[in-house]
């Protein structure tokens, strides 16, 4: 490792007050950036909030509010694995989780179907909502899904940072 890299690594070995890391991680999950703001790391918190919530919001808008929903019913050949990643953004994905639970219990969706899973059908005479979304949104459905999934995954990095602090390069150990 060069001297510059060692100096950079030493510079990064900072004493950071993580306050209560568990609470900070929970806050970071619920609202991206909130855990860092709770710890007093305001600038990083705002950076995470803008990047992660911005990515999530952009994906949501690109996908015309259809791309975040929870559905896992193998019997109906209906598995939305992407939601596990989208759930990484916390509260912003909670409505979809609530709608997904209601869907599993065969209850009608709330909020005019906002974030509700599409109704699948195997009857050729009726319209399949998911196929309808894919047809109308075209590649915007995939792009919106990609944005929201990546936002959730990026927030996992932010949660790690809130809990453990920054991932600092380890300094080389002197040889004996």
């Amino acid at each position: 490792m060069s001297e510059a890299r060692v100096a950079e690594a030493e510079e990064n070995v900072l004493e950071i007050d993580l306050r209560r890391p568990g609470i900070a991680a929970l806050c970071a999950w619920l609202v991206p950036g909130a855990g860092h703001i709770y710890q007093g790391r305001i600038v990083k918190g705002l950076l995470f909030a803008v990047c992660i919530l911005g990515t999530y919001g952009a994906g949501f808008v690109i996908g015309k509010e259809k791309v975040v929903y929870a559905a896992w019913e193998p019997a109906k050949d209906h598995r939305r694995w992407q939601f596990m990643c989208q759930l990484g953004v916390g509260l912003a994905a909670f409505p979809a989780a609530i709608q997904g639970m209601r869907y599993r219990q065969d209850k009608p969706p709330l909020w005019n179907g906002f974030m509700a899973p599409p109704e699948p059908t195997h009857d050729l005479n009726t319209s399949d909502a998911l196929s309808d979304w894919n047809l109308r949104l075209n590649s915007a459905f995939e792009m919106g899904t990609l944005y929201t999934v990546l936002a959730g995954l990026l927030n996992i990095l932010a949660i790690y940072d809130a809990f453990y602090g920054p991932m600092v390069e380890t300094l080389p150990q002197p040889r004996e």
């Binding site: 950079e8 790391r41 950076l47 995470f48 990047c51 992660i52 990095l157």
Partner: peptide, 21 residues
């Protein structure tokens, strides 16, 4: 935009100061 967001978040998980990020 994804490229920019990924790079910034990745950098922010390794540094505390703006220049490092």
């Amino acid at each position: 935009p994804l490229f920019i967001a990924i790079c910034l978040v990745f950098g922010a998980t390794r540094h505390e100061n703006w220049s490092g990020i």
